[in-house]
Nucleic acid binder design. Structure first.
Length: 626
DNA sequence: CGGAGTGTAAACACCG
DNA sequence: ACGGTGTTTACACTCC
C-alpha cells in the first residue's frame, strides 16, 4: 500500500536520516529501536537476526552518518540550510513516524512476565515457542512462581492437617527439587550467550533442569493421585481461599472441572471437591485418563526439548555466523557477506552473493512491514522494480510506488531516496529512458547492468573457499560471446532442474543464498551452469522443495531467459553500444525487451504445486511434532 | 593506496 | 510560480 504524498512529507519531516540533518538534531534514532525489547518484526531474515545480535553496536547507517557528521565538509553553497533547520526543529519534538512506529510496535508475543503477573500458566508444562531464551526463562520463571505458590499452599495445608510422614517426605523432595530448579534457572539467566560446544555448561544445566522439572511433576502427580493435595471436603473455607489458591488448583478453574474430558460445572471449590471425589476416583477410567495425561505431558516435554534444541542450534548458528563475520580473515564477498550483515553498513550490492529477487520474494512481508533498509543498492532495486513489472518498464512514479509498496523503509525520507532513485536512473547506463505515448518510462538494459560487474568477479573466492558452496559462478566473460554461452548453459541447467528436480533442504538453500555469485539472480545452485557438480540437485525430489525456494526459481528463470536474449541481442546487433549518451535519441524507441514473452506464467502451475506440497509437508511436520 | 561503486545532497534545466 | 522529472556535480564512504 502506497502512502500518499502528503503522508510521505509528514514522514519525511518527522523521521529522516539525512546526514546533513543529523548534526542538527542530535543522536541518531536507532534504525530498529526496540523500546523495551518487546517489539519484534514479524519475520526476521538473516540480516535482521544478525542486527539483533549486534544491536549494541551502531547501526549501518547511524555509524556512517555519525562519521559523516564528523568529517563532513561545509556545504558547497551557503544556503543549504534552507529546509534543514525547520525540519530538524520539527523532528526534535516530533514522535517517531507513523510508519516507523507501526513497524516497531508490530504485535509481538507477550511474555507471561510482561503481562504484569497475569494468571500463571495452569498447565504444568507450558508450550515453549522457539523464541528468545529470555522469554523462555521468563516463562519458566512464571511457571516456577506458580509452582512455588502451590508448594506454599501445600505446606500450609500440611501444617494444618498434620500430614503423614510419607507426604512430608514427598514435600521435602519437592521442595528440594524446586530449589534446585530455581538455582538452575538463576545460573542460566546469568550465563553468556549459548556456548558453541555441544557439552556446554548451559546445555548441561538445561538438561539438568529438564530432569528436575520432570521429577517435580512426577511428585506432583503423586500428590494429585493420592496425596494430600486433594483437600478434604471438610476443610475450612478460609483455607480454601488462602492466597486465592482456590483458583490455582490445576483441576479447577472458572467453575469448571478441568479433569480431561470432564468439564463438569462446580458452583464453588467445595462443590468441585465433592465432584472430584465422586467422579474421579481411583478407578480404571481415571487411571487411564491419568496415563493419557502423562503421555500428553511427555509429548509436551518432548516438544519442549525439541524447541529448546532448535533454539540452541539457532543461537549457535547465529553466534557462529557473527563470529565468522568479525573474524579478520573474511573472504572477499564471502558467504556471510550478504546473509548476515554486521554492524557496519552493509549494502548487498549486485556483486555480493544474495539474489535480490529471491531475497525480496522470501522476505516480502517482512520488508513490507518492517522499517528496515533493504540491503541492496538502488540500482539493484530499481532494476528489480522494472523487471517485476509486466511490461518490464516503469515510469519514475511507478518506480517510486514500487519502492514504497515493497519496502516500509521507503515510506519515509521520500525526498532523499527519490532523489537517489533519479540519480541512479540517470547515472547508470543500464537504465534507459524510453518515451512512449504515456510519457517516459524506464527500462533495464541487462547487458549493461551486468557489465559493471566483471572486474570484481575475479576476486570471488575459489569454489573450495570457506563459505563457497555449490557451483562456481561463470567466469566473467570479457567477450559477449562467452557471456552468452554461459547464460545458455545456465538456462539449460535450470530448465532441466525445474523439470526434474529441485533443491531441497534449508541447508542447501542457505548455501545457495550465501553463494558469492557475481550474477546473483540467475546463478543459483539449481543452475549449475556446467561449472559445478550439479548431480546433487538431481538427487533431490520435488517434495523437498521449500516454498521459498520455489518462489525463487521463477524469477531466476525469467531473468535467465531475459539475459540470454539480451545477450544474443547484443551479439547480433550493436545494442551494447547504446548508452546514456543516446538516451535523448532513444525517444520513441521501443525497448529491445518489450517483446519478450512472459515466460513466468509457464512455470506458475508447477511452482505453485510444489509450493503447496512444501506447505503440506510443513503442516505435517507440525502435526507430527505435536 | 587508489579506483570503482555507492549513497547522499544539491544545483540546475526543462516541462506541464 | 510550482512541482515533477532528469541530469550533473561533489563528496564521503566501503570494498576490493
Amino acid at each position: 500500500m502506497c502512502l500518499q504524498r502528503d503522508e510521505e512529507d509528514v514522514a519525511y519531516i518527522n523521521e529522516t536520516r539525512p546526514m546533513v540533518q543529523l548534526a542538527l538534531r542530535g543522536p541518531e534514532p536507532a534504525l530498529n529501536s526496540n523500546p523495551g525489547g518487546a517489539a519484534k518484526p514479524p519475520l526476521l531474515n538473516a540480516f535482521e537476526l544478525d542486527r539483533c545480535l549486534d544491536r549494541e553496536e551502531s547501526g549501518r547507517w547511524g555509524g556512517e552518518a555519525a562519521r559523516r557528521r564528523r568529517r563532513s565538509s561545509p556545504p558547497r553553497r551557503a544556503s543549504p540550510a534552507r529546509e534543514h533547520e525547520p525540519l530538524s526543529l520539527a523532528r526534535a519534538s516530533a514522535p517517531t513516524s507513523p510508519t516507523g512506529g507501526s513497524a516497531h510496535s508490530s504485535p509481538a508475543p507477550v511474555s507471561p512476565a510482561g503481562s504484569g503477573g497475569a494468571a500463571p500458566p495452569r498447565s504444568p508444562l507450558p508450550l515453549v515457542a522457539p523464541d528468545l531464551l529470555a522469554m523462555q526463562l521468563l516463562d519458566q520463571h512464571t511457571q516456577l512462581q506458580a509452582l512455588m505458590k502451590q508448594r506454599l499452599f501445600h505446606q500450609h495445608h500440611m501444617q494444618k492437617q498434620h500430614m503423614s510422614s510419607e507426604a512430608a517426605k514427598r514435600q521435602l523432595e519437592q521442595s528440594r527439587l524446586q530449589d534446585q530448579i530455581n538455582l538452575n534457572l538463576l545460573s542460566q539467566s546469568h550465563l553468556p550467550p549459548p556456548d558453541t560446544s555441544p557439552g556446554s555448561l548451559q546445555q548441561q544445566l538445561g538438561a539438568q533442569q529438564q530432569q528436575l522439572v520432570q521429577q517435580l511433576q512426577a511428585v506432583q502427580r503423586q500428590y494429585l493421585m493420592h496425596g494430600p493435595l486433594s483437600v478434604p471436603p471438610n476443610a475450612p473455607p478460609s483455607l480454601m481461599l488462602w492466597g486465592g489458591e482456590v483458583e490455582e488448583h490445576p483441576l479447577f478453574g472458572r467453575g469448571v472441572c478441568k479433569w480431561p474430558g470432564c468439564d463438569a460445572l462446580a458452583e464453588d471449590y467445595q462443590a468441585f471437591l465433592k465432584h472430584l471425589e465422586a467422579a474421579h476416583t481411583l478407578d480404571d477410567r481415571s487411571a487411564a485418563q491419568a496415563r493419557v495425561q502423562m503421555q500428553v505431558v511427555a509429548q509436551l516435554e518432548l516438544q519442549l526439548r525439541r524447541e529448546r534444541d532448535r533454539l540452541a542450534a539457532m543461537m549457535r548458528h547465529l553466534h557462529q555466523a557473527r563470529d565468522n563475520h568479525h573474524a579478520p580473515k573474511h573472504a572477499h564477498g564471502g558467504a556471510s557477506e550478504g546473509a548476515s550483515p554486521g554492524p557496519v553498513r552493509r549494502r548487498v550490492s549486485d556483486k555480493s552473493g544474495v539474489a535480490i529477487a529471491g531475497e525480496i520474494q522470501r522476505n516480502r512481508e517482512f520488508y513490507k512491514s518492517a522499517d528496515v533498509r533493504p540491503p541492496f543498492t538502488y540500482a539493484s532495486l530499481i532494476r528489480q522494480a522494472i523487471i517485476e513489472s509486466p511490461d518490464k518498464q516503469l515510469t519514475l512514479n511507478e518506480i517510486y510506488n514500487w519502492f514504497q509498496s515493497t519496502f516500509c523503509y521507503f515510506r519515509r525520507n521520500a525526498a532523499t531516496w527519490k532523489n537517489a532513485v533519479r540519480h541512479n536512473l540517470s547515472l547508470h547506463k543500464c537504465f534507459m529512458r524510453v518515451e512512449n505515448v504515456k510519457g517516459a518510462v524506464w527500462t533495464v538494459d541487462e547487458v549493461e547492468f551486468y557489465k559493471r560487474r566483471p572486474q570484481r568477479a575475479a576476486h570471488a573466492p575459489p569454489p573450495h573457499a570457506p563459505g563457497f558452496m555449490g557451483a562456481q559462478s561463470p567466469p566473467m566473460m570479457t567477450s559477449p560471446h562467452g557471456y552468452s554461452e554461459a547464460l545458455k548453459r545456465n538456462l539449460q541447467g535450470m530448465m532441466e532442474d525445474c523439470n526434474l528436480s529441485y533443491m531441497s533442504n534449508d541447508d542447501h538453500m542457505m548455501q545457495t543464498e550465501d553463494y558469492p555469485s557475481s550474477h546473483d539472480d540467475y546463478n543459483r545452485a539449481p543452475i549449475m551452469n556446467g561449472y559445478g557438480n550439479s548431480s546433487t540437485s538431481h538427487e533431490v525430489k520435488a517434495e523437498d522443495l521449500s516454498a521459498s525456494e520455489a518462489q525463487d526459481i521463477k524469477p531466476n528463470i525469467y531473468a535467465l531467459k531475459n539475459e540470454m536474449q539480451a545477450s544474443d541481442y547484443s551479439n547480433k546487433g550493436d545494442y551494447s553500444n547504446s548508452n546514456k549518451e543516446s538516451s535523448s535519441i532513444r525517444s520513441g524507441e521501443t525497448s529491445p525487451y518489450d517483446d519478450y514473452p512472459r515466460s513466468e506464467d509457464r512455470y506458475r502451475p508447477s511452482i505453485s504445486h510444489i509450493k503447496d506440497e512444501a506447505e503440506n509437508l510443513s503442516l505435517n511436520e507440525q502435526r507430527s511434532d505435536k
